[in-house]
């Protein structure tokens, strides 16, 4: 593509310098310098011992990581299972209202998290439309960890459906016909032919839903109840530290979360690279 001497292939199209310049300036000022400020703050004002004490050894912070990552894992797993079913149904079957359902899958992308937060809380509170059915069974959904899982499932849902859908559409029908003609049952064909083919896409969607859930704040804030050690997620703890003007404590937790987020971003990129290779 690009030869060894020049970093850019010559083109007759104009505007490269202008667009590149504006892009780099805007991205630098808005994204890279502020993020760099966080890194610099960590490097200069936070000693290793402080980082350990404030972001790792503190039992309240540890409890919040356990909740954030645990609930996010459960939510992403739920999304992987149900998202696969939704994608399958939308690609393979026809039923009344299918186009509406297909369009609605993107709702969590567009619906503000504060709105989904208060709606889910009202729905799953012990007097709510759904919560009242759980109340006699002694199951508390809102203001407890199941509520957090529900909020995180909602916001991560489109990722799995929207990554698995194209993979299912691209499947060659000949593969399934071949499997069937060789005597495979439908379930065997699904497990041995279809599932391996969509697995990279499914894992990508899972990782995206997980990454989104780990950082989510708005919807969980309303449904969690926010009890220290019990229903307090890590992003909320950052906010609490900041409200006390404890920049060091907030940054320490922020850095740990950022490292996890970038690790997940790396995993997602690797998975996408893998699924592209799988398809060709």
């Amino acid at each position: 593509m690009v030869n060894g001497l020049h970093w850019k292939r010559p083109s007759v199209l104009p505007g490269f310098g202008l667009c590149m310049g504006f892009m780099l300036l805007y991205m630098g000022l808005l994204v890279l310098i502020p993020l760099g400020g966080l890194v610099l703050f960590t490097a200069t004002r936070l000693s290793a011992a402080e980082l350990w004490d404030r972001a790792i050894a503190d039992p309240r912070v540890l409890a919040s990581y356990r909740l954030s990552f645990g609930a996010s894992l459960i939510a992403a797993t739920l999304n992987a299972g149900f998202g696969l079913v939704v994608a399958w149904v939308l690609v393979r079957y026809t039923f009344p209202g299918k186009r509406l359902v297909d369009a609605m899958v993107d709702l969590p992308f567009a619906l503000p998290t504060a709105v989904s937060g208060i709606a889910l809380t009202t729905l799953y509170a012990h007097t709510g439309w759904i919560g009242r059915w759980f109340d006699p069974l002694g199951i508390q959904v809102a203001y407890a960890w199941p509520g957090i899982v529900i909020a995180l499932t909602l916001i991560g849902m489109p990722f799995v459906v929207r990554t698995v859908q194209p993979a299912l559409e691209d499947l060659e029908p000949e593969l399934e016909e071949a499997a069937a003609s060789l005597g495979a049952t439908r379930w065997q064909t699904f497990r041995r032919v279809i599932l391996p083919a969509v697995l990279p896409a499914l894992l990508t969607g899972f990782a995206m839903a997980l990454a989104r859930a780990v950082g989510e704040f708005g919807s969980v804030y309303f449904i969690a109840g926010n009890m220290p050690y019990r229903t307090e997620i890590a992003p909320l703890l950052i906010l609490i530290r900041l409200e006390q003007f404890d920049y060091v404590g907030a940054t320490a937790i922020g850095v740990v979360m950022l490292v996890v987020a970038f690790a997940l971003l790396l995993v997602i990129n690797l998975l996408q690279w893998w699924s592209r290779r799988f398809q060709t």
């Binding site: 991205m27 994204v31 890279l32 310098i33 502020p34 993020l35 400020g37 966080l38 703050f41 990454a211 780990v214 950082g215 989510e216 704040f217 708005g218 992003p235 909320l236 950052i238 906010l239 900041l242 003007f245 920049y247 907030a250 940054t251 922020g254 979360m257 950022l258 987020a261 970038f262 997940l264 971003l265 990129n269």
Partner: peptide
């Protein structure tokens, strides 16, 4: 990848980085 970076960052951390730049401390 850099353009996608804000997607990976928790909204609370997005707020935090501006507080670290412009906040009282």
């Amino acid at each position: 990848t850099l353009i996608d970076l804000p997607f990976a960052v928790s909204p609370v951390i997005a707020g935090l980085i501006f507080v670290l730049l412009f906040g009282v401390r």
